[in-house]
Amino acid sequence: MLDDRARMEAAKKEKVEQILAEFQLQEEDLKKVMRRMQKEMDRGLRLETHEEASVKMLPTYVRSTPEGSEVGDFLSLDLGGTNFRVMLVKVGEGEEGQWSVKTKHQMYSIPEDAMTGTAEMLFDYISECISDFLDKHQMKHKKLPLGFTFSFPVRHEDIDKGILLNWTKGFKASGAEGNNVVGLLRDAIKRRGDFEMDVVAMVNDTVATMISCYYEDHQCEVGMIVGTGCNACYMEEMQNVELVEGDEGRMCVNTEWGAFGDSGELDEFLLEYDRLVDESSANPGQQLYEKLIGGKYMGELVRLVLLRLVDENLLFHGEASEQLRTRGAFETRFVSQVESDTGDRKQIYNILSTLGLRPSTTDCDIVRRACESVSTRAAHMCSAGLAGVINRMRESRSEDVMRITVGVDGSVYKLHPSFKERFHASVRRLTPSCEITFIESEEGSGRGAALVSAVACKKACMLGQ
Rank of each mutant, 00 (worst) to 15 (best):
I366R: 13
A176G: 01
Y289P: 07
V200A: 01
P432L: 11
G223C: 02
I351Q: 12
G328Q: 15
K140Q: 04
I19S: 13
G444W: 02
E112N: 11
G227S: 02
E128M: 14
F316T: 12
E22R: 06
R63I: 05
V101L: 09
R397W: 09
E248L: 07
K102W: 01
T255A: 08
L355R: 06
E442M: 15
I110R: 02
C220H: 00
D113M: 08
I19F: 14
V338A: 08
L20D: 06
Q219V: 15
V71R: 15
G299W: 01
T437Y: 09
E319M: 10
L271V: 10
F148I: 02
C461L: 14
E120F: 04
S64K: 08
E268Y: 07
L352Y: 04
E272C: 11
T342V: 13
E28Y: 09
Q138Y: 05
R377Q: 02
H317K: 13
M393T: 09
S76A: 10
F334C: 04
L357F: 08
V207Q: 00
T361C: 11
H416W: 05
A259G: 07
D132V: 03
V182I: 05
T149P: 04
E272K: 13
Q286D: 15
E216G: 09
K32G: 10
L88F: 07
S280R: 14
Q18D: 06
F152M: 02
F423R: 04
W167F: 01
A176S: 06
A119P: 00
F23V: 10
Q287M: 05
F195Q: 06
G227C: 04
I351H: 07
E216W: 06
G97H: 08
L30D: 12
A329C: 15
L463G: 12
G444N: 02
S336R: 08
V338D: 07
D135K: 07
A201Y: 00
L25F: 14
Q18N: 09
S64C: 14
E120W: 07
E70I: 15
A282I: 11
V182A: 09
I348H: 10
I159M: 00
T376C: 13
D409K: 02
D365C: 07
K102Y: 07
G183W: 00
V374N: 07
R327L: 10
S453L: 06
V199A: 02
D160M: 03
N240W: 12
R428G: 14
S64I: 15
F195A: 02
A188I: 00
V86W: 01
R345T: 12
S353V: 12
G318T: 13
S340F: 08
H137R: 09
L79S: 01
N240M: 14
K39F: 09
A384F: 01
A21D: 09
Q287S: 13
R303E: 07
D278K: 01
S69M: 06
A173N: 02
G68Q: 09
E51G: 13
V207R: 04
I130A: 04
M34N: 11
D42N: 13
H50Q: 14
K172R: 08
L271M: 07
E96D: 11
V335F: 06
E312F: 14
R333T: 14
G410D: 00
M381K: 03
K104W: 13
S127C: 08
D4P: 11
E300L: 06
D400Y: 11
E279R: 15
C461F: 05
L271W: 02
Q239L: 12
S383W: 00
H380K: 12
G227Q: 00
F419M: 01
Y289F: 07
I390T: 07
Q18M: 14
E236F: 00
M121W: 07
R7C: 11
W257C: 08
W167G: 01
G97A: 13
V244Y: 00
S100Y: 10
L77T: 03
V408W: 01
N391A: 08
Y349L: 12
G178L: 08
L146A: 06
V305G: 11
E242G: 04
L357S: 06
C461M: 14
E28Q: 09
F330A: 09
Q287A: 00
F152S: 01
A259E: 02
L288P: 13
G410V: 01
K143I: 07
E9S: 14
Y297I: 00
G44T: 01
